[in-house]
Amino acid sequence: MDFKIVVAGTSLGGLKAITALLSALPENFSLPLVVIQHREYASGELLKGLLQKVTCLPVQEVEDKDAILPGRIYLAPPDYHLLIDRGEFALSIDDPVTFARPSVDVAFDSAAASYGQGVLAVILTGAGRDGAAGAASIEAFGGVVLVQDPSSAEAKSMPQAAIAATKAAHVLPLAEIISFLHQNCCLGGQPQHV
């Protein structure tokens, strides 16, 4: 597997899972990691501050046209859709999709169209079904989807919807998602064939 980008989606309650994921990433994590979390407009830069405390990789809230660079954590800003546009980000204020803006579906689908087989997508705990259509899109364009095992997720509906919408998603507990990232997205890691 030769991934170029990791995209991770979760809903409002996903902070714990995201924090666990980021805090487990090593310094030699060598891909861009894009986090799409549903959140309030008023959350401001709070999320960025919280997440920067748990990782040595630089965390930033995306601005329009920011370049997508390896070894960085990118956060979707509140009340915008975040799109991946071949090497850079694009924002939109189009209507919410599946009640969400940022929508995981929109971000995943744009990642698929930009990076095809190079996309590794992660669906974490979450309510609703945002991310399911996006995960299907990633599969259709040749990427790989990991879904947090619903039995270990705080909110099950997002992972369940993603599992139902995909054909070959890997359903894994969070710890195994983390070791997958270690093995496939770090310099010097041992590629794991799936």
């Binding site: 546009d85 694009a90 744009s110 169209a113 930009s114």
Partner: peptide
């Protein structure tokens, strides 16, 4: 236009 958002529309 930005490709990704135009594509989505």
């Amino acid at each position: 236009y930005a490709y990704a958002s135009l594509r989505q529309r």
